[in-house]
Each structure stands twice: as C-alpha cells, then as structure tokens.
Write a protein that binds this DNA or RNA. Structure first.
Lengths: 339, 339
DNA sequence: CTGAAAGCGCTTACAG
DNA sequence: CTGAAAGCGCTTACAG
C-alpha cells in the first residue's frame, strides 16, 4: 500500500514550510498567489487530501451531520417507512451542498443514541426522524438539550417539548381530507390510527378530522380505531372496525401505509371502494398512486422538509435562534375517495 | 455550552494517569479491575465520550464506511431508485453491527469522488451503488484501485473490470422470466432496456432473455428497444415499439421501473395485459405488487445483498482476498405474465 | 507574505 | 499493573 502523502511531503516538494502548505490549500489570502498555485499543483499531483481526522481534531468540529432514523418497533428488518426514505434524498443533498457529510444510522428508541454522536465529535448536529412512542422519546430529547447537543427533529410541533421541530400541518391535513369526504356526501366516519399523545402527529390528524366532522355536525357518530403505521396493522384494524361498525361509509387513515392495508381488507371483505366505503390516507408515499383504487391522500413536501431540516440544524450549529417550522400540506385527490 | 470532558479530566477525578484512563475505557486487560471500574464509573458520570477525531487520527482509521450512490442522469432530484433504497437499510444495519459508521453521499459519475473518501481518512472503505454508463465508471474504478482504495460495488460481475463486485445473476433472471413466458405460450418477444456494454447488468438480462428464446427457437423474431431505467423511458419506448411491431405478445423489461411505464403505455393504447401482451419486470421493487395488473418480476435479495457488500468490504479492509459474489435470483409470479 | 512552534485528544510503545 | 512521553496530521496564533 502506497504511503499517503502528508502536508509535510507537499512542503518538502514545494520548498516551503508546512504551515504555508496548509494555508495555501485552504486558499488563505495570506499566501502569495504563485506560492499557492505551486503548492496546489503539487498537492494534486501527489493526490494529497487533507486528513479529516487531523483537521477536525484541530478545529474541534466534524463537518458532519448525523441522521438518526427510528423505526416502528414492529416493522421487519428490511422495511424503512417509505415516507422517511423520500426525505433521505433531500437531506443528503442539502447536507452535501452545505459542505457537510451525512452519517446515517437506524436506532431503537431505547438505544443510548442521545449521547453518542455529538459528544464524541462524530457529528456537529443531529437530525431525528421517525415515529415512536412520544413519551419515551421526549425524555431523551430533554437529555439531548441538557447536553447542549444541536438537534432538530421531524415531527409534531409542540411548544412544550424540547428542541426545535419541523413538521407538516397535520391538523390541517386531517381537516382538509375529511372535509373533502364530507363534500362528497359521506356521513359515517371512522379514523384508523392512534389518536393520543403517544403519537402526536397522528393525534393532530385525528383532531383535524374531528374538527371537520364537528363543524359538519356529524361528529357524534364518528368512530376511531387504533393502528400503528403498517399495512398489516391497517388490515386488522379494518376487520375489527367492520365488525363493530358495519355501517360506515368513509375511512380516514392516519397514514398511507395504514390505508394500503385498509384497501386490502375492504377488498377481501367484498366491499367496493369508493362506492360503499371511501378511503383516504396521509403522506402520499410512492405506492399511493399505484394502489387499487389509487389513493386520495395528503401530500407533505418531503424535498422541502429535508432542506428545512438541514438548514435549521446548520443555523442552530452556527448559534442562531431557530424557530419551529410548520409546513403546508396539499390534498391529492385520486380514486379512493370517489371524487 | 458546557465544556466537554477529556480523558485528562477523568484521570484527574480518578486519581490515575491519562494513559490508564485510556486503557480502562478500552477494556484493556492490562488494567486492574477495580481501577477500570472506577474509571468507567467516572466517565459515565461525566458523560465522557472518546473523541473520535483524536482516536481515529491516532489509530489511522476512521471506523466508517462510505456509501456512494450514483443516479441515473435523468432522474429528478427527488427520486432515488427504489431498488437501491431497499438495499440501504441492510447496508446501514450491517455496518452498524460491525461497529462502523456509515457515511452516505449521492454522486454524479463525473464528480471527483474517486479520491475523496479514503484518501482523506473519512472512510476506511467505499461501497458503490448505482447504474450509469459503465465505460465512464470503469475509468474511475481503475483509479480507485491504483490508489489502493478499498471498495466493493454492486453490479455486473466481470472478471476484467477492476475491484470486487457483488451482483445478482442477471443472466439467469433474464432467462427464467423469459422461459416463464415461453411456457405460457408466448411467441413474439420484445426486450425493453439497454442491451449493450454500457449497461452490463441490463445486457446480461438481455442475454438471458435471448438465450431462452434461442433454445425455444423463437429468437429470430425477437426485438429489442432501448430504454433507461425510468418509468417515462419505459413509456415512450413502448410507444415506439408498438409502432414498429404491433404484433408482439410479450415484453420483457430490463427493470421494474421500465415495466411500470410499459404497463401505463399499454393501458393508454387500450391493449389488455396480459391477454394481448404479457409484461414482466426485474427487481421486485415495492410498487411491483401494487401495479395494475400486479407485475411478474425477478426478485433480488436486497437484504442479503447489503450484508454481503458490507462483509466483503470489511474483509477487504482486513487485508483478505475477496472474491466476486453472484447472487441467486427468484422468479416472482403475479398477474402481468398471465400465469 | 512566511516559518517555527504549540496544541487539538487520543493510543501505545517503552520503562518500571 | 501503571505512568511519562511521543506522535498521529493538521490549524493557527505568534513573531518576523
């Protein structure tokens, strides 16, 4: 294995001091143009790259961001929530554009992640993505904040919780999609998905749903059925729901993954969609448009979300005050709502 | 901001030397059990984490792997090939299990990536994922090898090309899926996707396809239509194909993404699938089962693939000889082939 | 504009 | 089993 060149090697070849090499490579205005060019030429020739570890150690930062992904406890080993996956792309790109590397890691809520990254100087800040029991989550967030770790999270906005959050307008999305169904004449509503503070995003969607029903004066016969964000959970939730309430004509799902399971359960029960029961989801994941029937849902702008996440984190690292950010959502109308 | 504790702080608190702290934290058998436990307790209490930059600098490695993802030049900013995405999960997990961090980055084939990672000690090795013009790719691979960089790539196996490759049996997959169609009585075949050395994986699939047709003695009327791996490209390729060959009854696609476009084009042309034309894909991406009709395709085990990629890279880093690896594929029969 | 020197926080021979 | 010391490869005051 060829020895890696160091700045001393370059200095030697260029006939200057190592300090000058370092300056020249960083384009310091302090160094003479000719010297700088000579040094850079030699560096290129010797295939020299600044050693990140040394540079980071000296400068006390890592120019790296860590993306921590939490998974639903039930998802199998292979599956990542497609919604988060779509954010991954823009986060990666935004980090790169800002000159930061991106470390990615899947975590369990129970892991010791809250201390790992920034404390060991592996990353200058952390992006938190994922659902999970909010109560448990919250404790860790508090610790993170106590350690002065820089972090942003994707999730429900909540003034009480620690740190800064970027999230979409779950309430409005739940409201809009329910109103859409109401406008189409639906009356007997069911919401499938957790609707309590352990899952604040789902809860906000539920509250939007409930608000729309209340304004339309049909809230009294609305029902709710728990489910976590997987296809299987949506499937079995539907079966239970149908048993308890065979008369419903509209199902609002807390996520597309749930909705996909609902669609399958209804089909297996020989219930026509949307004629007998209309179904809507939330997230606009890629399969939503391929489902049969195609799924009416609420779209969150994942590209923008990734960019804002990175931008906010960078500003936090720079020491600025950063506010929560509420992202606008859009209704995507397809066949499953019967529009 | 609270000052971060260093090993000297721990040493001070524990009343031992800093060397001993370092040893104790790394569980060195050299240090007395009591001393070790005392040191570890204090470290925990002070929330001390070994500084990665210092440790890596000293040990001359980074304990991180870099995952470089190349994209099709035409894909828009948001979309990552879902096939690679599904490998991401297992690569991340496998790295973590081996105690390595994972850096991820999207690259253009034209970027200067071949020198960036290992040379700057950011990563101990590189995993290359993605399609792209093989000719251009190959040059970079040669440079990588010349620099003694540790890398593995996902792709076609080819003894001539530099480095070690892990790939699925594209030839067999192309053969199997074509044979499946042949068994169902199809006679007039078309292959949609690039079939030349710039895209060796597609080419191998094509060759498997062609071999099956040759054995069945129907190769003389088989056609091929270029397309890159996107839905849109599959769509327009189908339209051109139909114009040239209205008589075909089976389309073998080089990828699922292409197949999804083909399905849409046939539907828009009022051609029934699979009655008039049977369609098959390759990859078994998540939407394949949601397409209408659901797509018969070839499944590559992405979980295994990710594990083997990481394992091979780690062995390369450890200085072992590593062989290419050909992964087995499975036919997934759904509706689009008319079975 | 340039150089000599200190120091970032570790790990690990070396000596005891 | 433990400590004093060197050194990984940089960046950056400090002095000129």
């Amino acid at each position: 294995m060829k020895e890696k060149a160091t700045s001393f090697d370059i200095a030697h070849h260029a006939g200057v001091s190592q300090s000058t090499v370092s300056r020249a490579l960083r384009n310091s205005p302090l160094v003479n143009k000719e010297t700088r060019e000579k040094v850079q030429a030699i560096a290129r020739e010797l295939n020299y790259k600044v050693d990140k570890n040394a540079s980071n150690l000296r400068r006390q930062h890592s120019k790296t961001l860590a993306l921590l992904l939490f998974e639903d406890p039930t998802s199998d080993n292979s599956l990542i929530n497609p919604f988060f996956l779509s954010m991954l792309g823009s986060i990666t790109r935004a980090s790169a554009n800002a000159g930061y590397d991106l470390l990615i890691s899947f975590q369990n809520l129970s892991d010791d992640w809250h201390a790992e990254y920034e404390d060991s100087n592996k990353a200058d800040g952390i992006i938190l993505l994922g659902y999970g029991d909010y109560t448990e989550y919250c404790t860790k967030l508090t610790q993170l904040e106590a350690q002065n770790t820089h972090f942003v999270r994707w999730g429900a906005l909540d003034d009480e919780h620690p740190g800064v959050s970027i999230g979409c307008d779950n309430f409005q999305g739940g409201f809009d999609v329910t109103q859409h169904l109401l406008d189409l004449g639906r009356k007997q509503f069911a919401f499938i998905g957790g609707a309590d503070s352990r899952a604040p995003e789902f809860f906000a969607r539920y509250q939007g749903y409930y608000k729309a029903l209340t304004l339309a004066d049909v809230a009294q016969c609305a029902v709710q059925q728990d489910a976590i964000s997987t296809e299987d959970s949506g499937y079995s939730a539907t079966l239970s729901l149908l048993k308890r309430h065979p008369d419903i004509d509209a199902i609002v799902c807390a996520s597309d993954l749930i909705a996909i399971g609902v669609l399958r359960a209804l089909r297996d029960s020989n219930i026509s969609i949307p004629q007998q029961i209309a179904v809507v989801g939330f997230d606009n994941v890629p399969v939503a448009s391929f489902a049969t029937p195609s799924l009416t849902t609420v779209k969150q702008d994942t590209i923008l979300a990734g960019e804002i996440l990175v931008d906010s984190l960078l500003r936090l690292i720079a020491g600025e005050e950063v506010e929560h950010y509420l992202m606008h959502v859009d209704l995507v109308i397809r066949q499953s709502s019967g529009a």
